[in-house]
């Protein structure tokens, strides 16, 4: 019944590219990956790198605490009103994939409260290799693994490894200490992912997040090209 209806009026239903007032919403990038691989560290570094040029906000999905949100607040990577923590009821992948309603509400609420934003980063709670974001929640997604959990992880594959728009292999500084072979990881990842990009990072070094930041900047350019608002929301005339 009522199949002729379109979703206008109050509030978008899902991943509509426009906000209720007709303006294009922020680009939403999801960051997923196993526990402790460096998702929050990547989010923090991205915020530091991009916050002067772009209007940013972050949604964290902590499993049991507000650990990630609190870390970002402590590190003061963004003002507190730009960071929202979503509770996931013991099931982080459900909240980013099967039932995204709480996360959608969080990203929409950030834009409603803060005005137009360029970019919202959604960090998933640390999960397993099958956890990926719904396209209803994010426009593009990064899967973060690290060298110290075993250099065979890219070979094992799984939806995160094979389909994420960017695969980040983090903590390369630890590779010599844990006997991880970065060349093998790179060739396994390439075999699993075809043409999809892979970035190797070490966030302990200066500007270690650069490869990821460059990729995000490309995504932002593409996103802005599809909009009536080509300038960054923060740009002053």
């Amino acid at each position: 019944m009522h199949l002729d209806h379109t979703h206008d009026g109050s509030g978008a239903v899902s991943a509509d590219a426009r906000r209720p007032d007709g303006t294009r919403r922020a680009l939403r990038i999801g960051l997923g990956g196993p526990v402790g691989s460096g998702k929050t560290a990547t989010v923090a570094a991205l915020c530091r790198t991009l916050r002067d040029r772009y209007a940013l906000a972050v949604v964290t999905n902590d499993i049991y605490t507000r650990e990630d949100a609190d870390f970002l607040l402590r590190e003061a990577v963004l003002p507190p009103e730009r960071i929202t923590a979503v509770e996931t009821g013991a099931c982080p992948h459900t909240a980013i994939r099967d039932d995204i309603s709480a996360n959608l509400e969080a990203v929409e609420d950030l834009e409603d409260r803060l005005g137009p934003l360029d970019l919202i980063l959604v960090e998933s709670g640390g999960d397993n290799l099958t956890a990926t974001f719904s396209k209803g929640l994010v426009d593009t997604q990064i899967f973060v693994i690290d060298v110290s959990s075993g250099d065979d992880i890219p070979r094992k594959g799984g939806p995160g490894i094979t389909t994420a728009d960017l695969l980040v292999v983090n903590k390369t500084d630890l590779a010599p200490h844990v006997g991880a072979d970065l060349t093998t990881m790179a060739s396994d990842a390439a075999r699993r992912r075809g043409d999809l990009p892979v970035a190797f990072t070490s966030l302990t070094g200066d500007d270690g997040v650069r490869p990821v930041a460059d990729w995000v900047l490309e995504r932002l350019t593409v996103w802005h090209h599809g909009t009536a608002r080509p300038e960054p929301a923060t740009a002053t005339p």
């Binding site: 009522h2 199949l3 209806h5 979703h7 009026g9 899902s14 509400e105």
Partner: peptide, 24 residues
Amino acid sequence: KLGRQLLRAARAAWPCEALERLAR
């Protein structure tokens, strides 16, 4: 909160004026 979330799902599943009005 759960009402808002249910409304989002219901509007997608059974779109109609009554649900839109509730959202407004």
